[in-house]
Amino acid sequence: MRTSIGRSRSILARAAMAAAALVSVAGLTAALPATAHAAGAVQAANSCWSGPNVTNWQGITFRSRTCPTWTGVNVYEATGQNAQGKYVYTGYLNAGNNWVVCQTRGDRNPSLGGGTNDIWLYTQGDTTKSLPARKAWGWIPATAVSYGANNAAVPGVPWCSSYPGYLP
């Protein structure tokens, strides 16, 4: 699970991004330094930016991307239903700037805020719900990502197929 130090840094990063977003939405971007404009434009255009190296519950280390999620969301064990026709939740991911490893297609996402998609992102939740050995690792729906578009991949996140020999 994410450490309290990582969580504190994440909270500070979330506060900074929220402040920048509010300033930008209010049309006050001229008051920001030029470097802030450039960084914000790149992040909005790509949706996600470089994140930390992370190690999953199986001991595999990945480079990640940081993506803003606009809502808290369940972390799913898989991108589809199990043999009993149910979804299993491994954890819960709080809203904010959260890292993800990759994206893949699966079942239709739950409709969050009216969004539709079949893209899922591999990550680790902030809290564990079930399957404690997985340490809250699993999949979140793209409909939880702030800059994702309906029925489209999340810009700036690699496809899971780009990891030869391993598809989470």
Rank of each mutant, 00 (worst) to 15 (best):
A95S: 12
T104A: 10
G27Y: 10
N117Q: 05
A20C: 07
G6F: 08
L131N: 02
A31V: 15
N56G: 07
V25S: 14
P164T: 09
T90L: 00
M1R: 10
C160A: 08
N150V: 06
Y76S: 10
G148V: 07
A78P: 01
K129S: 09
A21G: 13
R9H: 12
W139V: 04
T35L: 09
A18E: 15
A18W: 11
G27I: 10
V23K: 12
G125Q: 05
A16H: 11
N56W: 07
A149E: 12
Q84C: 02
D107C: 00
M17H: 14
A142N: 09
N97K: 06
V88K: 01
W57M: 02
G40F: 14
T143I: 06
W159L: 13
P155V: 05
L32H: 03
G106S: 05
Y163R: 10
T127R: 06
G85D: 08
T90Q: 00
N53Q: 11
D126L: 03
I119H: 03
S130M: 01
Q103F: 05
N117E: 06
G72R: 05
A153G: 03
G106R: 03
A20R: 15
S161R: 13
K129Q: 09
T116G: 03
T3E: 04
I11K: 12
G165R: 10
C67D: 06
K129R: 11
Y163F: 15
A83S: 15
T104R: 14
V101P: 07
N98D: 11
N46D: 12
P158V: 05
G138Q: 00
N74F: 11
A153S: 11
R9K: 12
V100R: 05
N150G: 04
A20E: 11
A21V: 13
W49D: 13
R9Q: 14
T79F: 03
V88A: 02
V100N: 06
L12D: 10
H37G: 08
I119M: 13
I60E: 08
A16M: 12
E77A: 14
Y87V: 04
C48W: 02
R63T: 11
N53G: 05
T29P: 01
V23G: 07
A36S: 13
N74M: 08
F62W: 11
L167H: 13
I11T: 12
M1E: 10
P155N: 09
C67N: 07
V25M: 12
T90H: 00
L167T: 15
L12I: 14
G156V: 06
T71S: 09
T123D: 08
S24H: 13
V154R: 04
A78G: 04
I11Y: 09
P168R: 07
T90C: 00
T69P: 05
P155E: 02
V154W: 08
K135M: 07
A44H: 12
R14Q: 15
N97S: 12
W137K: 02
A136M: 03
W99D: 15
A144I: 06
A144P: 04
R134V: 01
A95F: 01
V101W: 03
F62P: 03
V100F: 04
I5F: 13
T143F: 01
V54N: 01
Q124R: 10
L12P: 00
L131F: 00
G91T: 00
N56T: 06
T116R: 07
C102V: 08
I119N: 05
R134P: 00
